[in-house]
Nucleic acid binder design. Structure first.
Lengths: 222, 222
DNA sequence: TTGCCAGAGGGTACTGAGTGCCATAGTGTC
DNA sequence: GACACTATGGCACTCAGTACCCTCTGGCAA
C-alpha cells in the first residue's frame, strides 16, 4: 500500500508537478481513500522520500554497532550507506533529484531529512570524542563536513544522470574529509610502528589544506 | 507594521505555543486585518525570524565586496555578521532559541534559513577556488564547516541564556575551522618571507587534527 | 473644487493539507 | 457465533495561504 501510494504520487508529481498535484489526485490514482494516504505518509512531502526512514534506521544501527576504529572513517562508511540507497535506484534517484531541485518545499523537506542523518553522525562522534578537547565542536564540524562531501559527490553523480559509479565521486570527496579530520591509524596500511616519525617541509606561506595534502601523501607512502 | 505584527506574534507564540496560535489570533492582537499579516510575512514561520532577510542581504553584500584576503577568513567574518544579529538582542534570541527547539516546524524553517547563508558562502568560496583542484568540493565542505562551527558557538551562548560574550565561543570554533582550512598567510603576523620553511615531527599514529594543531601553533610562533 | 491616480490596508470566499472521530470490512481466536 | 483486533474508508473540521475586490487616504493636475 505504501508502495502503491508512493508510486502513484511520484508519477503524478513528475507529470504535473508537486504543487499542482493534490492528495486527492494521488489517492484517486491509487484507488484508495484519502485518509489512508496520511496513514502511510505524515505529509505530502514524505511520499517523495519513501525510503529515507528505513535508511536512517540503517545508519543509526550501523553507528550503534560500530567498533572502535577511526571515528571519521566510520562516519564516512555510514554516509556510504546513504549513497547505497540512492545507487540502488538510479533512475528514481535522478528523477527525484530533478523534482526536488525545482520545488522549494521539497528542498526544505530534504534539508530536514539530511539534518537527521547529520545529527545521528554528530551523536556518534560526540560520544567518541567525549574525552577530548573540543570534542563536541569537532563532532559537529566533522559531521557537517562528511554530509557536505557526501552530498557533493552524490549531486555530481545525479547531475550526470546516474551514469557511472557513484562511489567514485563520493569516496573522493569523503577522502578529502578523512584526510583532514581522520586519524592516521587507518590510512597507513602496512601496520606502522607507533614510534615512526615523519618530517615535512613546506614554504611558510603555503595554504594549510595544501600542507595537509602533503602530509597525507607522506603518510600514505609509508 | 511589520514590527507590530512580529511583536504580537512572538508574544503569543511564547504564551500559548506556536502551533496553538493561529494567524487570526495574531492579527486580532495586533489589531489589523488578516490579509495584512501575509503582506508582511509570507508564512507564519517568517514572523519568528523577522531579521534574517536583512541579515542575509548584509552577508551577501559583505561577500560581494570582500577583497582578496584569505577566503576562509573572509567567510568566517561573514559568519560573525550573523552572530552580530543574534547578539544585538540577547533576550529575544534566547527566547526564540527555546521556542525553535520545541517546535519541529520552526526547526525545519530555521534549517532553510541557515542553508541560504551557507549557499551564499559556498558561492563566494567557489568563485575564489575556481582555478584550484576540487575547488567546488572544498567550497562546500568549508562553508558547511563554518556554518557548523558558528552554530556550535552560537548555541552554547544561547543555552547559557545569552550571558557573557558570544564572540568568544564562536571565534574559538571558527578558529578551529580556519586552522584546518584557511591559508597560513593571514595567521603569520610578522610578515614571513615566502621561502621560510617549517619542519614538523610527529609520531606516525598521531591523529591528523592533532598534527594540524601542531602545525598551526608552529606557524603562530613564527 | 473636481477628477484622477496610487498605494496601503481590510474583507470575503476559496483551495487544499492535515486531523479526529466513527463506521465498516476482513481476519484470526475461543 | 461472539469476540477482539487491525486495516481502511468516509465525513467533518481547522487553519494556512491565495485571489479578488473593496475602501480609505493622500497627493497631484486641470
Amino acid at each position: 500500500m505504501r508502495e502503491v501510494l508512493a508510486e502513484a504520487a511520484f508519477q503524478l508529481f513528475l507529470d504535473r508537478g508537486f504543487e499542482q498535484t493534490t492528495v486527492d489526485d494521488i489517492v484517486a490514482r491509487a484507488g484508495v481513500g484519502r485518509r489512508s494516504f496520511f496513514r502511510y505518509f505524515p505529509s505530502k512531502e514524505d511520499a517523495v522520500f519513501p525510503d529515507h526512514e528505513r535508511c536512517l534506521a540503517d545508519v543509526t544501527a550501523f553507528l550503534d554497532g560500530a567498533d572502535g576504529g577511526d571515528p571519521v572513517g566510520t562516519v564516512c562508511d555510514a554516509a556510504r550507506l546513504v549513497l547505497r540507497m540512492y545507487a540502488a535506484n538510479p533512475e528514481f534517484s535522478v528523477q527525484r533529484y530533478r523534482l526536488t531541485r525545482e520545488v522549494p518545499g521539497l528542498r526544505t523537506y530534504e534539508l530536514s531529512v539530511v539534518r537527521r542523518y547529520e545529527r545521528t553522525m554528530t551523536g556518534y562522534l560526540r560520544a567518541r570524542f567525549a574525552r577530548e578537547r573540543d570534542g563536541a565542536l569537532r563532532a559537529e564540524v566533522i559531521a557537517a563536513s562528511v554530509v557536505a562531501a557526501h552530498n557533493n559527490g552524490l549531486r555530481s553523480w545525479l547531475r550526470s544522470g546516474g551514469e557511472g559509479d557513484p562511489y567514485e565521486a563520493v569516496d573522493h570527496a569523503l577522502g578529502m574529509v578523512r584526510g583532514v579530520w581522520g586519524s592516521a591509524d587507518e590510512r597507513a596500511r602496512p601496520a606502522a610502528a607507533e614510534e615512526d616519525v615523519i618530517v615535512m617541509v613546506a614554504p611558510k606561506g603555503a595554504p594549510m589544506w595544501q600542507v595537509v595534502q602533503r602530509i597525507e601523501s607522506a603518510f600514505g607512502e609509508g
